[in-house]
């Protein structure tokens, strides 16, 4: 199957600090891939580097045949990447409906239908659609953030720690929704919550100190407690 996203020997930096120093990943159409690793390993930076929010020093990032290195963030997004940051990135002074409307790209013709569809996935958002985002709970903000990535026909969706800071009951709801979304979308998921990652992803990459060190099928990782202990501290 053709790869949607291919990252090779990626090095990136923030200020004077090199964060990524050799990341290789490949995501194929329809896959859900988990990026795992300890705190500070460079997982979130990988997503930010793909989005052009962190500077690339060397290496390549290909979306299909298109290189994403050195082009502005808005161009990267317009090539068909949805991004869900770890702090949700919702706009507090816009309503839920406005947050969704703003996310619809010019080339998306069925935006209204897609908004109706995300309201079906997250009915809470439909009920509160005219509420300002600043009044939402953490779980609702996360739902809104994910929904924004669903209102376009994206080639891939990058999701950064969707369970972060959420109550277990909310994480369960989110897991069900993400599993459903993964049936129709290609997902690159950064997640600290091992069980959530296992519930959604079919393959994984482990990043340690800015490098990809191991990859494989998620069911093999579930069996390999030694690997979990070494790289994930579980």
């Amino acid at each position: 199957m053709a790869s949607i996203l291919k990252v090779e020997n990626l090095n990136s930096y923030i200020g004077q600090y090199t964060i990524l120093q050799g990341v290789d990943i490949e995501v194929k159409k329809g896959e859900a891939i988990a990026i795992l690793g300890r705190n500070g390993a460079g997982k979130s930076t990988l997503l930010k580097t793909i989005m052009g929010l962190v500077n690339t020093r060397s290496g390549s990032i290909l979306l299909g045949e298109d290189s994403l290195v050195g082009i502005p963030t808005y161009d990267i997004a317009n090539k068909g990447i949805g991004y869900v940051p770890e702090d949700y990135g919702v706009f507090d002074y816009l309503t839920i409906a406005e947050n969704l409307k703003l996310a619809i790209r010019n080339d998306t013709k069925d935006g209204d239908d897609r908004i109706a569809k995300v309201y079906d996935i997250f009915p809470d958002l439909r009920k509160a659609s005219e509420r300002m985002a600043r009044t939402l709970s953490g779980g609702q903000r996360q739902m809104l953030s994910i929904s924004r990535a669903l209102v376009n026909d994206n080639k891939i969706i990058l999701i950064d720690e969707p369970s972060k800071g959420l109550a277990p009951v909310v994480i369960e709801t989110l897991a069900v929704a993400l599993k459903e979304i993964s049936k129709e979308s290609t997902i690159l998921l950064v997640e600290q919550n091992f069980s959530l990652a296992c519930a959604i992803a079919s393959r994984y990459y482990i990043i340690n100190e800015g490098r990809t060190v191991v990859n494989g099928k998620i069911e093999d990782l579930i069996q390999d407690t030694q690997l979990q202990a070494t790289h994930l501290g579980i």
């Binding site: 989005m51 929010l53 502005p72 963030t73 808005y74 997004a77 317009n78 991004y83 940051p85 990135g89 706009f91 507090d92 002074y93 816009l94 406005e98 947050n99 409307k101 703003l102 996310a103 790209r105 924004r148 376009n152």
Partner: peptide
């Protein structure tokens, strides 16, 4: 909408393709 959103998170506005 872009103005109100950009006031708060210009990076995220860009990440939406704007």
């Amino acid at each position: 909408m872009v103005i109100r959103a950009g006031v708060q998170r210009s990076d995220m506005v860009q990440a939406l393709g704007i």
